[in-house]
Nucleic acid binder design. Structure first.
Lengths: 209, 209
DNA sequence: GTTATTATTTATCGTGCGATAAAGCTAGGG
DNA sequence: CCCTAGCTTTATCGCACGATAAATAATAAC
């Protein structure tokens, strides 16, 4: 017997690719809330369909999960961010604030943040690759621009220190999102203000040597 | 049939409280690695005992998990930290570096960090309480000491901004641990150096107003 | 309008889970 | 040395999980 109290109305018939894309999108939101150990039956109920339907579109639960990883971690980066940090026609602080404002508009959402942490805790390989890419695309450019702005010469000796300093800026911003979207605690300011304050601190106190 | 290849030797008989404490301690380490959805059978194998043994000491898996939460989140704070940040006989930077050095000696370990995030993602109530306590015991004192050092008057208008600034410092340090212990990526400096650099940035660039 | 196609559902399988009951074994008291 | 208390194990239950097969129904082609 079907455990649902109300008899389900048959799900609307949809073209293969439409349904498939819908499953990936909604399943991401579902797993972000309940973790990847949530069941395919609950997922189907969330989708408004039945459990075996998923297996027409994905060979296994894990195949679906892998596709969610791809959509989140590979699809997150936007083309226009690439030159944003290094455009020296604009003041550095302005570049940093605008970049982090836009970048966090994408990643600082409950879905993205939670999936990122769920996947990290699971030891999913792609999260390590994601961090490596963040270092090359964000941390290192930020560090180099900071150094250029302050006349700091980057050497093999101080590179590690300067990279970690740029990571600290990133971490200070990121943890704001963790508090808000993972732990659900009250924060005291809006995202934009937090970014501005953190960027201000780092640009004004960047070490000369 | 027992799936173990080698026939288990019977577990050494131990007094109730000894075995019980051992289960909590080792189970914390086990769940930190594999998440709270790991099975009680695997846990028993990890403990070197059998699965039903756990039920002599805890009425359910969840009761054991709750006890692990308590031991981690309530038992983490050390008495001597309480006056450390506010001891104005010492230079502020020195206080901050020493506090964060010692505090991170406790929390910046794979076990603590992973359980903290696992629990947070599960929506476990105690993590919200933990963050509230961190704000009262660390963030607010840090903010007030910073303000006092720089002659900043804390008002209802700027309090939110100053609190978030102190959170940024904490977040910058914390995220270093996330990278290292959750994502397993290479970091460029030792913890102590990262703390020193972050504290240096924040103490030298703290806003006057 | 009939038929072919395929999206969707119902029914079910084997497995592994948390939990319980009962049997087995070991240390300490007499 | 035996007996008993209680720690530990074996055996097992009911259930929910991922996955598959077969039946059903809605769309598309002609």
């Amino acid at each position: 017997m079907n455990p649902n109290v109300l008899p389900r109305t048959r799900a609307a018939r949809k073209p293969f690719e439409v349904r498939r894309a819908e499953i990936v999108r909604k399943a991401a939101s579902f797993f972000a809330q309940f973790g990847f150990d949530a069941t395919t039956r609950d997922l189907a109920s969330w989708l408004g369909t039945t459990q075996p339907l998923m297996y027409r579109y994905f060979p296994s639960k894990n195949a679906l999960v892998e596709e969610i990883y791809q959509s989140i971690f590979v699809g997150a980066w936007k083309r226009e961010w690439d030159g944003m940090l290094t455009d020296r026609a604009r003041p550095l602080r302005e570049r940093l604030v605008e970049f982090y404002d836009q970048y966090t508009n994408v990643i600082m959402q409950p879905e993205w943040m939670r999936l990122y942490l769920f996947a990290g805790l699971r030891g999913v390989e792609i999260t390590g690759l994601y961090i490596a890419r963040v270092e090359e695309r964000i941390i290192r450019p930020v560090m180099l621009e900071m150094a250029a702005e302050h006349g700091t010469v980057v050497t093999p000796e101080n590179e590690a220190r300067l990279l970690e300093l740029a990571w600290s800026l990133q971490g200070g911003i990121f943890y704001y999102g963790v508090r808000k979207y993972v732990y659900g605690t009250a924060v005291h300011q809006e995202k934009r203000q937090v970014i501005e304050a953190a960027v201000e601190i780092y640009t004004s106190a960047w070490p000369k040597a």
